[in-house]
Nucleic acid binder design. Sequence first.
DNA 1: CGCTCGTTTGAGAGGTCTCAATTTGGGTGG
DNA 2: CCACCCAAATTGAGACCTCTCAAACGAGCG
Lengths: 230, 230
Amino acid sequence: MPVRLADTPAIRALPLFSEMSEQSFAEMMDRSMLQRFPARADIIREGEMPDFLYVVVEGTIDLFATRDGVESTIDILYPVSSFILAAVVRDEPYLKSARTLAPSQLLMVPSQVVRDTFTRDAAFARGIVGELAARYRSVTRVLKNDRMLSSTERLASWVLSSARRAGRDSFELPLEKRKLASYLGMTPESYSRGMTALEQHGVSSHGATITVTDAARLKEFVRPAMNEDI
Amino acid sequence: MPVRLADTPAIRALPLFSEMSEQSFAEMMDRSMLQRFPARADIIREGEMPDFLYVVVEGTIDLFATRDGVESTIDILYPVSSFILAAVVRDEPYLKSARTLAPSQLLMVPSQVVRDTFTRDAAFARGIVGELAARYRSVTRVLKNDRMLSSTERLASWVLSSARRAGRDSFELPLEKRKLASYLGMTPESYSRGMTALEQHGVSSHGATITVTDAARLKEFVRPAMNEDI
DNA sequence: CGCTCGTTTGAGAGGTCTCAATTTGGGTGG
DNA sequence: CCACCCAAATTGAGACCTCTCAAACGAGCG
């Protein structure tokens, strides 16, 4: 069942799709599907070959890697964003698994359609370039944080950017703390202790509500000499 | 001083450039430079805006991040490969610094030229997509290793892939051990102790020569349950 | 009301880093 | 050609961070 164009304005607005021709987009949607998944549904598994490019239209997606039964969350996605573009483009196995965290609606574009369109529509190719470059930079930042910041500093850094994104000093945790801990590369216990430690540095936390009480102090803590958030 | 086409066969052969039209490539080279640098020369600095796309034609490049005076090597490049493509494409600040480790020759393509060509030549755009996707996947793998492997396991994993790349059981260290340690996300001391530990697992090391004496044993050590090297 | 599961707290072990001392190896100048 | 020198590498000791395991706590739900 192809996707009706009426359902796609949010998708069309993504930088990945926004510049492509009306015709290419319509064709692509015609060959794609919009599907609902319950919470905790497995979407893809590490090691499989890519069948689809996915776009989170609604819900939450957990991208994680597994080794020896242990999971490590690499990224968490909210609407509207695409995932596993790189695997699709290169037609190589997924490096990550994905599952829904909440009931979700996903756009599924067959990978062959992505590659076809990408060959024919230069604007779409540019969209892909922008998207890939952005994601590349994003993982690079994560890697840098993992390498050069302590777990408490990573947590502080996350609190800062969450507050900035929210536009307020106070915000709600968007996830279970254990997921968030994994996303930040630490255990739930370390997360809990880290949050306690941050109370000395301008953060207060009650239940799922986190408040930055002293932004300057917190910034000072997270980067005693870090370049402005490049 | 533009680059003479006679100097460019190796560059032209890169997947990034190999599919583009002869004309686009010639124009691009005409607006680029080929420049020599001594060892330990700073090429770019984290936080600066991208002026050029670089290609290592000869020598060795160290890509590293800095915080508080501490350096962490993120990648090490040999001929022929490009670097900092993502920053150029997005016209956003470098996330990494770069310096030469050995006397090197670099192709410098002004970033404006990259973006111009990329708009006009669809084949070049495809080349960029392939390159970005490949690099994205590469950082992702590094991140996964950092998150889920101990330092000794990362070292073992590096030894395995080096031997595979060399096509032999024995190979020479391509770098100072301290650089390699940083690249693997550990201290020189940990590297040294890790290498000692690996002697129990099928690796012997003398000076700059590393030999895999028991590949099966080493593989067993590095992934008690890891998926084939995705 | 009593599970169940996530979170927090506690105690302890382990891995990795830091600092310091020693050894090794490569390069230089006599 | 050798002795010396410097930087890198190794080794040792100890501290610190983070993890693991265990138990207590608390909130949501049947």
